[in-house]
């Protein structure tokens, strides 16, 4: 028998991969399990119960933070996706447009700065603005979330655009469709899955953000993650596990949707 190299069988690699998946999933499984624990004490299983979910859902502070987080994430994702779509249209399918690489680099810039640095930077800017204008309110949080969501919304939209056939749009233009009609009837429908993926990514990123929100929020502006971080100081409670499980469920749902949407190739 000839020596054949089977690239699938590097010894030990399968075992390490199994370890990696165990490491990735075991903690989450334990957390989800304990969120259904009937007992008061974490760490001792006393049977299945919804009590922590009932308690979390009727907790006014959690309701308030959850609502704020959801609205913030929806609006920030919508705005950042809109900006990202325009920017992606500007920077793709244009070999003659030289500045496109520089523009893309600026748009991706928030990705290369550590979150804590961006948090500090925005804190300084916003405290100046608060002092100068006397305005406080959700506008600051929203502006921050829109900014760091832009690169995440931009990536899938750009990827989709790059895979799209420009001939369809050219054909429509040759048949005397106005640029606006071409965009509305050809470009937009073809781009839709990319836009949806970008929106969902931005939504999850905004929903999960802790560090930046933690630095720039003022009194009465708790988001769900900053509320949870604050609660951890007082010791862990299964109520937090219930909230976490619901958030994990939401992220999973959104990720599955975007996975399915993105399977439709342009």
């Amino acid at each position: 028998m000839a020596r054949r190299f089977d690239p699938q069988t590097l010894p030990g690699f399968g075992a390490i991969a199994a370890l990696a998946f165990a490491l990735l999933y075991l903690p989450l499984i334990v957390l989800v399990t304990y969120s259904f624990n009937a007992g008061d004490l974490i760490g001792r299983w006393e049977g299945l119960s919804w009590r922590w979910y009932a308690q979390a859902l009727s907790n006014a502070a959690i309701q308030d933070a959850a609502l704020r987080s959801l609205v913030l994430a929806l609006v920030a994702a919508a705005l950042s996706t809109a900006l990202a779509v325009l920017a992606a249209l500007a920077t793709t399918r244009a070999d003659q447009f030289r500045p496109r690489h520089a523009i893309a680099a600026v748009i991706n810039q928030p990705l290369v700065v550590p979150e804590i640095v961006m948090a500090v930077a925005l804190l300084l800017l916003f405290s100046m603005l608060r002092q100068a204008t006397g305005l406080s309110g959700m506008g600051y949080l929203l502006a921050a979330h829109v900014t760091f969501c832009i690169p995440f919304a931009y990536l899938p939209v750009r990827a989709r655009l790059e895979g799209m056939d420009a001939n369809l749009e050219r054909a429509a233009a040759d048949l005397y469709a106005s640029p606006l009609t071409v965009f509305r009837r050809i470009t937009l429908p073809l781009l839709a899955p990319g836009i949806l993926a970008g929106f969902m990514l931005a939504f999850v990123i905004s929903l999960d953000n802790v560090v930046i929100s933690q630095f720039i929020k003022t009194a009465g502006q708790e988001t769900l993650p900053t509320y949870m971080l604050g609660q951890l100081r007082r010791g862990i409670s299964a109520e937090i596990y219930a909230v976490s499980t619901m958030l994990v469920g939401l992220s999973l749902l959104i990720l599955t949707l975007s996975f399915l949407v993105n399977r439709t190739r342009p």
């Binding site: 900006l83 990202a84 325009l86 920017a87 249209l89 500007a90 920077t91 244009a94 003659q96 447009f97 500045p99 496109r100 523009i103 600026v106 748009i107 810039q109 928030p110 700065v113 640095v117 961006m118 500090v120 930077a121 925005l122 300084l124 800017l125 100046m128 502006a143 921050a144 829109v146 900014t147 760091f148 832009i150 931009y154």
Partner: peptide, 30 residues
């Protein structure tokens, strides 16, 4: 192609301004 380049700049402007004002400027403040 010049007209197209101008359109592209306009399209990129909102995102560029947002990042400039809320990411680059704050870094300068730091």
């Amino acid at each position: 192609s010049r007209r197209e380049a101008r359109t592209r700049w306009w399209l990129a402007t909102p995102a560029l301004l947002t990042i400039a004002a809320l990411s680059l400027l704050p870094l300068c403040i730091v």
